[in-house]
């Protein structure tokens, strides 16, 4: 048999990844893990609110001067913001494209609905949408203050207490943090499979880590509004 001679250029690594379902999922896994890493740091930072306004506001100020004198004021902050923005865009775009494809690939429904996958697995899409909407609200509320009446730039402690003194501030936040916990519970384990590091031997450890991360992040984030509601932080 005669084989045809290859003349075309080989597609690049990035093109091969983005052009396939398996590769796009890899983009999702990596961007998800970047956001996850950020959220762990963010959650720990938030806990400083329990040490009072001075310490929390000082910490918020420090975020603007990290890396000085090598970095100019806010350079580090903007670097983190750019990476996170890229991660969110990559994650949401691949989620959207893959989900559309998945829905199209399975047009008919069976008469019986007996999903054997977990609740966290089945709520990834809705959970993701909730997280996306929350993200927009959260930035407008506590970063820019656009939707926050009485927002005081440079006074994050007061702004946080202010937000969690409204019922809707608490509801939005609590719903989003529950969605986050579920998203991470399936997402972390799933990303391990996507990146090819899961195995029978490691499955227990990966599932336990996923559950622990989900629980610690949810409890950590939720502790702030609960503290404001109960008057521990005011």
């Amino acid at each position: 048999m005669a084989l045809d001679t290859r003349t075309g250029r080989r597609p690049s690594f990035a093109a091969t990844l983005w052009g396939s379902t398996v590769g796009k999922k890899t983009v999702m896994a990596v961007s998800g893990l970047i956001m996850l890493l950020y959220l762990v740091v963010h959650m720990i930072g938030n806990l400083k609110i329990f040490f009072g306004a001075a310490e929390f506001n000082h910490y918020a100020h420090w975020l603007r001067v990290v890396g000085e004198p090598f970095m100019h004021e806010e350079w580090t902050l903007w670097l983190v913001r750019v990476v996170l923005l890229a991660a969110v865009v990559a994650h949401a775009t691949s989620a959207y494209q893959l989900s559309r494809r998945d829905i199209k690939a399975r047009p008919g429904k069976y008469l019986h609905r007996k999903p054997r996958s977990s609740y966290a697995t089945r709520t990834m899409r809705w959970g993701g949408i909730i997280l996306g909407l929350f993200l927009v609200w959260h930035l407008l509320d506590l970063t820019t203050g656009t939707v926050h009446a009485g927002f005081r730039p440079g006074h994050p402690y007061q702004n946080v207490v202010d937000t969690f003194s409204t019922w809707y501030g608490n509801v939005i936040y609590l719903v989003a943090m529950l969605a986050l916990g579920l998203h991470i519970r399936h997402g972390f384990w799933s990303a391990a499979q996507t990146l090819g590091v899961g195995s029978r031997a490691r499955d227990r450890a990966l599932k336990t880590t996923a559950n622990a991360l989900a629980l610690v992040l949810t409890v950590g984030f939720v502790s702030v509004p609960v503290a404001v509601m109960t008057g521990v932080v005011s």
Partner: peptide
């Protein structure tokens, strides 16, 4: 094989495990 799988219109994996 993965390219062909995609071209045939199969969906992607969400690790549902079904």
């Amino acid at each position: 094989m993965v390219t062909q799988m995609d071209e045939e219109g199969f969906g992607g994996c969400t690790l549902a495990g079904e």
